[in-house]
């Protein structure tokens, strides 16, 4: 199945950067009330807006877990604007038919989710939560637009 690529399954079985970050300067919880998925994103952001550390605690399906894991890999050491741009790139890849500007591997391995409308929010929840944390807010749900 296109949606459960090897990379996706590997990240879901052994998620990277999993767990709390005691020194987090920013953190937010994201919920999908329809399925009970929950993602907490922890960030250490320096005063100039660079993400010096990112971790996540995710309770959800394989798509949600692997999306959070790949996201945590991808945003280490990014600055605020670059991380925000990446959020938009991933969101476009998951929700839009136009090819746009793909985010590259391994994030592109999530592209297959787009063909499963009921599962798109599983993949976007970590990114929505990341944006929420970066904006200094603490809570988001899939039933509100980020």
């Amino acid at each position: 199945m296109q949606v459960y690529q090897k990379t996706v399954l590997e990240h879901s079985r052994k998620p990277h950067h999993f767990g709390q970050l005691a020194t987090a300067t920013h953190s937010a919880e994201g919920f999908n009330p329809l399925c009970g998925d929950k993602v907490t994103v922890y960030l250490n952001m320096s005063s100039n807006g660079t993400i010096s550390a990112a971790r996540h605690e995710t309770s959800g399906c394989a798509i949600c877990m692997s999306s959070a894991s790949m996201m945590a890999d991808a945003i280490q050491a990014l600055n605020f604007e670059t991380a925000k741009a990446l959020c938009l790139q991933v969101n476009t890849m998951l929700t839009s038919d136009s090819s746009g500007n793909p985010p590259g591997m391994p994030l592109q391995s999530l592209e297959g989710v787009r063909a499963f409308p009921s599962r798109v929010k599983c993949a976007t929840l970590p990114w929505q939560t990341l944006l929420t944390a970066m904006m200094g807010e603490t809570l988001t749900t899939t039933e509100q637009e980020a």
């Binding site: 199945m1 459960y4 399925c35 399906c61 394989a62 798509i63």
Partner: peptide, 13 residues
């Protein structure tokens, strides 16, 4: 060890 939604998608397939 397997989330219900993942099962649902694979079963639907």
């Amino acid at each position: 060890d397997i989330h219900p939604h993942d099962l649902g998608t694979v079963l639907d397939h």
